[in-house]
Simulated scan of single mutants.
Amino acid sequence: MASASALPNEPAQARVDSWVWAVRLFKTRSDAAAACRSGHVRVNGVAVKPAHSLKHGDEIRVRVNGVERIVIVERLLTKRVGAAVAVQCLIDKSPPPPDPQLVAAQPRRDRGSGRPTKRERRETDRLLGRED
């Protein structure tokens, strides 16, 4: 585990998009900013813009690929750090993922078995002689 000296000097403030990117919740900073703009990032229960300033102890809820992550800010960062260091900068309060057996047991519709597309309806109408 990395020592405390491996952490960079803590800045006075950090933007939320920069921080969630720096602690590796998003792959790119532009992805983090887009998630903020679309309302997928909440700080203390409020949807925020990418430039929102964070402080120590803020609770951040992030929805990434349909999975909600809940983290508490331990240290402020503006630069991306290694995974071992990033873990020291947050407290992860995320719920555990669902049981794989439970997910596999849920019914799933086969691709193409839903409502017909416009093209398929036209082909059916042509086949049945209902063309206009």
Rank of each mutant, 00 (worst) to 15 (best):
E10L: 09
P50Q: 02
A104K: 01
V23F: 03
S30K: 08
V64D: 09
P116A: 09
S53P: 03
N65F: 10
K27C: 13
I70W: 03
Q13T: 15
G82L: 10
I70S: 04
D125A: 15
E10N: 09
V46G: 10
A51F: 08
A104F: 00
R130M: 15
D92A: 07
R42N: 11
S38T: 14
D99Q: 15
S94L: 11
P95Q: 12
P97L: 12
P98S: 14
P107V: 08
G39W: 00
A12H: 12
R80V: 09
P97Q: 10
V87W: 01
V62F: 10
P100M: 06
D17I: 07
A47D: 11
S30F: 06
V71S: 02
D110C: 11
L90V: 13
A32G: 02
R119V: 06
V87G: 04
P98R: 10
R130K: 15
V73T: 12
L77W: 04
T28V: 15
V64F: 04
D132N: 14
K93I: 06
D99L: 15
L77K: 01
E123A: 13
V103P: 02
E10K: 05
K55M: 12
R111W: 14
G114M: 07
V43D: 03
P11S: 13
E131S: 10
I70E: 00
H40K: 08
R126T: 05
G45T: 09
A105H: 10
T117H: 05
N9L: 09
D31Y: 12
N44Q: 11
V71E: 02
L128G: 08
P116M: 06
V73C: 07
R121P: 09
E131K: 08
L90D: 04
L7A: 00
T78Y: 05
A84L: 05
A47S: 13
A84W: 01
R111Q: 14
R15P: 00
Q106C: 10
R37S: 12
T124E: 13
D31Q: 15
D92N: 11
G45L: 05
S38A: 06
R108K: 12
P107Y: 02
P95K: 08
R130H: 12
K55C: 14
S30Y: 07
D31E: 15
K118T: 14
Q101Y: 09
R121F: 09
R37Q: 11
G57V: 00
K79P: 03
A6R: 01
V23I: 03
V41C: 02
R63K: 02
H56P: 12
G82R: 04
R42K: 15
T78K: 07
L128E: 10
T124P: 01
D99M: 14
P107R: 05
C36P: 00
Q13C: 14
I60C: 01
R61K: 12
D99S: 15
S5Y: 07
P96V: 15
Q106W: 06
E68V: 10
R126C: 03
K27G: 13
A22E: 04
S30P: 04
A104L: 03
A4I: 11
S53K: 02
V48E: 02
V46E: 08
I72H: 00
